[in-house]
């Protein structure tokens, strides 16, 4: 499905990824955990070629190529198999919610407009925004915008959807509505690779949890293994606040 091997990325002298391997099988919900600066976001951005990795290999949907060898045409082909949900939503501000979803279908894939609109409406309906087709991003709340972002990512029917901290820019009241949508996608078998700090979501929804630190994968496994019996000291340390129940006893 999606396999990334030995990926390296440095910004100047700052080595952000130091040989990461990630494997996502069809139907998997893989959650990437780790402290800020551990390289999670950079990993996602490299997979989608929003940053160019210095080294490494990617295999997705029949394409098998080293990052450095990928030409414009290869990058475009890979991006069509992967979609991306951004921390800041990044909706097209000059387009309505429906146009945000159909744009990739009509312009990117040359789909007839009527078909794209049908798919777009279905996807927005799925994320609970059937009454917001004609709203512009500026008229939507953060949670609604992010749900449009998810609908946009789902509409192009990708092999895998990458989520980059999809709830981090939301206030606590709005996080739930976005996580609910993601949970529903998970139960429908959507393949997802998610960077998040929502530990309960990771524990309850993930099929696999990957813990990263300083540009390396420290430990990965089923959520039960990671959350209940982390093997590595660094993982335990990171999860301590979430697992330990006495920290905030009042």
């Amino acid at each position: 499905m999606l396999a990334v091997t030995n990926i390296h990325k440095a910004f100047g002298t700052n080595e952000v990824l130091r040989g990461v391997d990630i494997m996502v099988e069809k139907g998997d919900v893989v959650v990437l955990l780790g402290a800020s600066g551990s390289g999670k976001t950079t990993l996602l951005r490299c997979i989608n070629f929003l940053e160019l990795a210095d080294q490494g290999h990617i295999r997705v949907g029949g394409i098998d190529i080293a990052f450095r060898d990928a030409r414009k045409k290869d990058i475009h082909a890979i991006r069509r198999k992967i979609s991306f949900v951004f921390q800041n939503y990044n909706l097209f501000n000059n387009k309505t919610a429906l146009e945000n979803v159909t744009e990739g279908l009509i312009i990117g894939r040359g789909m007839p407009k009527s078909q794209a609109v049908r798919i777009g409406k279905a996807c927005l309906d799925k994320v609970g925004l059937a009454n917001k087709f004609d709203s512009y991003p500026g008229q939507l709340s953060g949670g609604q915008q992010q749900r449009v972002g998810i609908a946009r990512a789902v509409a192009v029917n990708p092999e895998v959807i990458l989520f980059d901290e999809p709830t981090s820019a939301l206030d606590p009241e709005l996080i739930g509505e976005v996580l609910d949508v993601m949970k529903r996608l998970a139960t429908e078998g959507t393949t997802m690779l998610i960077v998040t700090h929502e530990m309960s979501f990771a524990r309850d929804v993930a099929t696999k949890v990957v813990f990263m630190d300083e540009g390396n994968v420290v430990e990965s496994g089923r959520p039960k293994e990671i959350f209940v019996k982390p093997k590595e000291r660094r993982t335990r340390q990171f999860l301590q606040r979430f697992l330990g129940d006495s920290d905030y006893a009042i």
């Binding site: 929003l50 951004f86 990044n90 097209f92 501000n93 387009k95 744009e103 990739g104 990117g108 990512a153």
Partner: peptide
């Protein structure tokens, strides 16, 4: 980010620039 979102949904860089 909007440009990045454009290429992420399968538009070419030129399409994303021109449309978004």
């Amino acid at each position: 980010g909007q440009f990045e979102a454009g290429v992420s949904v399968g538009m070419t860089e030129w399409q994303s620039f021109r449309r978004v």
